[in-house]
Design a binder for these strands. Structure first.
Lengths: 81, 81
DNA sequence: CAGTAGGGATAGGGTTCA
DNA sequence: TTGAACCCTATCCCTACT
């Protein structure tokens, strides 16, 4: 059987552990964050490459939101059809 | 000028090249199929995303009428330099 | 060899059109 | 409404560089 190796979505807990780890060691110190007993439990299913990729995603997404002067882009719409 | 590049329907030749490519490399190896000189000519107007989307549509439709045993695709790829 | 940065590729959800 | 084709992007893979 083919197991799903992809589509391993990040949980809120994992993301918060990553952010906390970056606050402690700085972005780029992925291995240090990963082995720190303060964050290791939450990030047990991730490796340093995963941390790097997730942080790239977070900063890219936030950069778009921050630089957008128009905040009227409200996606909380339920209009489906 | 109405250059509608959308709804570029798949021809029988393209679809057969895709299926043959999957038989050779396995589903998910879209780029490898695309650059293989055996299939590249038939798929010159497509990219790897197109291949992935077409295969999804094909399997999704056929899943409703699935009654054939799947083939044994062995992909134990452990290439490391 | 271990770790990181960046580009490339894939999977799945969403959107559009006939 | 449904299905085929296309778009968006989070996640994963590959490789050069240090």
């Amino acid at each position: 059987m083919e197991e799903h190796r992809k589509n391993n979505k990040w949980t809120k807990e994992e993301e918060e552990a990553l952010v906390a780890g970056i606050a402690k060691y700085g972005a780029g110190k992925w291995k240090k964050i990963l082995v720190d007993p303060e964050f290791a439990p939450q990030l047990s299913g991730r490796d340093n490459i995963n941390l790097k990729d997730k942080w790239r995603n977070l900063t890219k997404t936030q950069a778009l939101n921050e630089s957008s002067p128009n905040n009227s882009s409200d996606m909380s719409n339920e209009s489906r059809f």
